[in-house]
Design a protein around this nucleic acid. Structure first.
Lengths: 199, 199
DNA sequence: TTGATTTTAGAATGAACGTTCTATTTGTTG
DNA sequence: CAACAAATAGAACGTTCATTCTAAAATCAA
């Protein structure tokens, strides 16, 4: 990578990092380019050498955040088949405990709200969602070897997003009982004969 | 109710209805007062005779939409105890099938995004969430008479919000299999001995 | 009907915002 | 080092937006 290319990717990271912070704090449409630029330590005008518009920055953020989530699922492919079910369960619990994921949740809601009126954003989100779903279905069906892998995947994904949603609506909720609930539900989803054959 | 009072409440409804439509289509912060006023068939300035600011309109919308959701749960109090479990299940499925709830989802996401930076909105949402949760816990614990009512309530609420979330992320999803999944999960939640005693 | 009060319209205001433009600095290359 | 290209700053522009202000229309009371 040449010096120019290095600088370019560094600047783009600066912009995306700054934008992500601003978006979490103020939302996509109240975060101004001036604020983003100040945080990225460059002039507003300079941002336009790397991004065509503010919309392009939003799209890039959505893509990056979705890709992050997808990557974490992809890591599970390397886990041993016998341990996979318990590793997935622990990962799920871990994501509840980590405070950092609340920031992620903030962006998630912003993204979901946005994808209902911005087709480009909707497309990005759907692409990553499909990737995660395919990945999980493969893990559950082929590696763990359970039947009805798609139904189990959907249950799991409902569980994940539902939990994030509830933590936003009720931030004072008792985390430990939520974790117990999540552990049990995950085990139930990843156990044979739990799901009826009428699905 | 005097003529003046009638007119007043009519105008307020006009404004809230118009605002709700605008907010669904463009989001809280891109929907301009001019658009809302045009849709409510009055001048922008006139809106300020009924609402102190745009923020106040947002708060009123959040309150109204949350109250609508809470009301639908309150209706279940009148249902016969023996039928309650199946009525709740059918209600859940119905809410998946109704296309109108997608509009509701749009507003929900907007509201959840907003409540992360607007404490007043957060307060409104938390109040209604607590009301719904208490209501459900009462129904499950006292009317149906199941143990571990709080845990079952939380599972149910996770399920609900999770499903709405997933339908946004993957609008082409097969509804009938989702409904089958929901029916089974609801039955599982509302059946004794489903939940382990370590919760 | 007349006077008073409320309701309504619509233009005016001032701030904020996304974007563009011009100029300056920095870095690279022959 | 000189000359050119890329990077960067920051002011300027045009627009949009929430809000305010002024005045007209409508309603009501007596």
């Amino acid at each position: 990578m040449t010096g120019a290319e290095k600088r370019r990717t560094a600047r783009i990271s600066q912009i995306l990092d700054a934008a992500a912070l601003c978006f979490v704090e103020m939302g996509f449409h109240r975060a101004g380019m001036a604020k983003i630029a100040a945080r990225a330590k460059m002039s507003p005008g300079h941002i336009y050498h790397y991004f065509e518009s503010k919309e392009a920055i939003i799209a890039a953020i959505v893509d990056r955040e979705s890709a992050k989530a997808a990557e974490r699922f992809a890591e599970l492919d390397a886990v041993d088949s016998n341990e996979l079910a318990s590793v997935m369960t622990e990962r799920a619990i871990q994501s509840i405990e980590e405070k950092t994921d609340i920031l992620q949740s903030a962006l998630n809601m912003e993204m979901l709200a946005e994808c209902q009126r911005n087709p480009e954003i909707a497309c990005i989100i759907q692409r990553h969602d499909k990737y995660i779903r395919d990945q999980l279905t493969h893990l559950i069906g082929n590696k763990i070897g359970l039947d009805l892998a798609e139904a189990r995947t959907d249950m799991m994904m409902v569980q994940f997003s539902g939990l994030a949603n509830r933590l936003l609506r009720n931030p004072d909720m008792d985390l430990s009982s939520m974790i117990a609930l999540m552990r049990q539900t995950m085990q139930s989803i990843l156990t044979p004969d739990t799901i009826g054959d009428h699905v």
